[in-house]
């Protein structure tokens, strides 16, 4: 009797370890029970999250009422600056198009930087400290694929990590960890020095709330206040998404590279809407 219990217990433990080990890492497709549970839960969570967000947002708005005049003035200033830049931008865009035509760019090369932004609503958030997840209401049926970049107007939020037909799970930047077996690394560069600064965002420190960037090439030493953006060197990844600003920079482990601590630009708490960036499919364009 006692022996049987121990054997059952051991079988159960082995089974669990097998499932856990199997589920780590990238999986292109989830099984149908997983898809079913995720979709069914998403449908329920959607009904809870949105109204809760609206009510909380209403009270926040009331509290912020005083600051609204200042904010308005600020916005007017940026709107004016935006109008100025826009005319400049249009002229430049036209010129680039002309040059591209003159240089016989293929269609694929021309379309490479036409990113499509899809608005997604957040439907639930897990604040489990070891496994933070943001769920959004777009799935593989809407064209979401693994490793798509998720941003807000402030900056990069995370990457799509699991996709099911109607909803998907986003891994926020706060889950980046160089030491974990399934980590993702983000190639980054410094705004204004895209040519000579290149590094990798490889971790988040929950104790300080800062991202770390390492292996920055020695040709440029980042200074405090520099804006870090994604570099488009890997072409599955969109270019120029703001990640954060540099807080401090040090010489790296072997004295050959620099490392920097970066304050994330996006706010990860209480999101309601995010944008999923769809990079044009290179294979599709080539056809």
């Amino acid at each position: 009797m006692r022996n049987r219990r121990i054997i059952v217990l051991m079988i159960v433990v082995v089974l669990f370890v097998a499932v856990m080990g199997f589920s780590i890492g990238e999986r292109k497709k989830l099984t149908w029970p997983e898809n079913f549970i995720m979709d069914a839960s998403g449908a329920v969570q959607q009904w809870f999250y949105k109204p809760a967000g609206y009510i909380a947002g209403f009270f926040e708005d009331l509290a912020n009422l005083r600051g609204i005049y200042e904010e308005n003035e600020e916005l007017r200033k940026t709107a004016a600056a935006y109008a100025r830049d826009k005319s400049k931008f249009n002229l430049m865009e036209e010129k680039i198009e002309q040059l591209q035509k003159a240089l016989d760019f293929t269609k694929r090369q021309e379309k490479m930087n036409d990113y499509e932004y899809m608005i997604a609503h957040v439907i639930a958030v897990s604040n489990d400290p070891y496994n933070q997840t943001i769920r959004i209401d777009l799935g593989s049926k809407d064209g979401i694929k693994l490793n798509m970049v998720v941003v807000t107007t402030e900056g990069l939020v995370g990457l799509v990590n699991r996709v099911d037909p109607l909803y998907s799970n986003v891994m926020p930047l706060t889950e980046l960890d160089e030491k974990s077996p399934d980590t993702k690394l983000i190639a980054a560069t410094v705004l204004g020095h895209e040519k000579d600064a290149f590094g990798i965002i490889d971790g988040y420190n929950p104790e300080t709330g800062m991202l770390s960037m390492s292996r920055i090439s020695e040709s440029y030493r980042p200074v405090k206040g520099d804006t870090i953006i994604t570099s488009g060197l890997v072409n599955v990844f969109p270019q120029g998404m703001v990640i954060g600003t540099v807080e401090s920079a040090q010489v790296g482990d072997f004295g050959l590279t620099y490392t920097a601590t970066i304050k994330p630009a996006a706010d990860f708490e209480h999101l309601t809407e995010v944008l999923v960036v769809k990079v044009p499919d290179i294979e599709e364009l080539a056809q």
Partner: peptide, 17 residues
């Protein structure tokens, strides 16, 4: 298990176990 699957990010089965 429900929590593991719904908020699946890294690993399945931890909360179930």
């Amino acid at each position: 298990l429900l929590q593991d699957i719904v908020f699946y990010n890294n690993i399945l089965g931890v909360h179930a176990f």
